[in-house]
Nucleic acid binder design. Sequence first.
DNA 1: TGTACATCAGTGAACGCGCGTTCACTGATGTAC
DNA 2: TGTACATCAGTGAACGCGCGTTCACTGATGTAC
Lengths: 194, 194
Amino acid sequence: MARPALKKSAIEAAALSLFAARGVPDTTIKDIALRAGVAEGALYRHYPGKNEMAVALFKREVEKFGALLSPLLFDPSRSLRSRLRSSIRFMYRYYRDYPVEFTFILMTQHGFPERQILRPSLNPNDLVIRFVKDAPSERSPRRDPVLLAALLMGAVLQPAVMHRYGRLKTHPLSLADKVTLACERLLEIERARA
Amino acid sequence: MARPALKKSAIEAAALSLFAARGVPDTTIKDIALRAGVAEGALYRHYPGKNEMAVALFKREVEKFGALLSPLLFDPSRSLRSRLRSSIRFMYRYYRDYPVEFTFILMTQHGFPERQILRPSLNPNDLVIRFVKDAPSERSPRRDPVLLAALLMGAVLQPAVMHRYGRLKTHPLSLADKVTLACERLLEIERARA
DNA sequence: TGTACATCAGTGAACGCGCGTTCACTGATGTAC
DNA sequence: TGTACATCAGTGAACGCGCGTTCACTGATGTAC
């Protein structure tokens, strides 16, 4: 190797924050280079193009998130309730500590074909579906685990979205116990009906 | 008036469907004109530009949706449960019957500053918050109505999102009763804790 | 009713800006010997 | 250790394509009288 890639992470960090704030199509190479303190051509030493970089960052960030979430959801030594609770706390802590990364994941969710890009074992959607499938139910197996996963995901993520847009004033992390309670009640639905 | 605006609605319909499918930034004037069967300049007879048209369509579509949702949420002659149920059924029916409009609303939610664009009396987020505030609770008033509204919105919308991306195979409309049950349980949270 | 005129939705070629990308070049670092 | 060379991250000017927008024009419709 001739030279260490000193600017690569600066470029990635700049791109990530701009993508999170404005979305990929409204972010220009010029913006990224300016924020990273780098020439416009530098990006092409590391990625074939802007979109390829966006996809790579999406994959990296979501899989990083999934890799941290997975052991919390599936720790065999802990109860369902305990795993649920710490998973939710983890997500909101992540939102607090890495708002750029979290927002980027949230926003680009609609922009990329996640299932083609992400390994299922690290894709949060797949992880939650698996969690729900494993979760004990009076009916076994559950009627529609994907629906239940959607209810959980929606209930957990929407407060973060609403906080992000200034509607919810309290930080979700302070509300994690309430959300956990809500999710427990959702998990009970089929049991209650059985 | 010299001539009726024959092509205006064709332009709007073409724009709406392309915006819903690809997002506003990835849709070109050329695409819109082509699909509408119209010259590229025609758009500028009705809107000052592409972005202004996108904002106008967003406002029109979300407020149309809100205008239909509002009387369902607040019909004084019906119980909370009944209003919740028909509101959820309405949303999923809208998703089934107007998938383009519904998807456009969902996708551009993150792209526009809704609170500056929409009248609160027709903004679905505001409507649901008001619904939650009005809903009876053992604690009156509720501790955090916005959180509860977020939980409800997330739980209702996420199944539609998951259906749209092919994860949830069953159409949400068939699952409306289950989702209603889930939302009722969410509404009970504070009561259960009190 | 007929005629002259005004209006304006729609056309489509042209424009020019901004964008992503290219490329010849630099020079610091790593390697060979 | 010193010297010659190879590598490649980073530069920044240049390019050219595609985009949103403009504009002179058309012609159908509505209005005035």
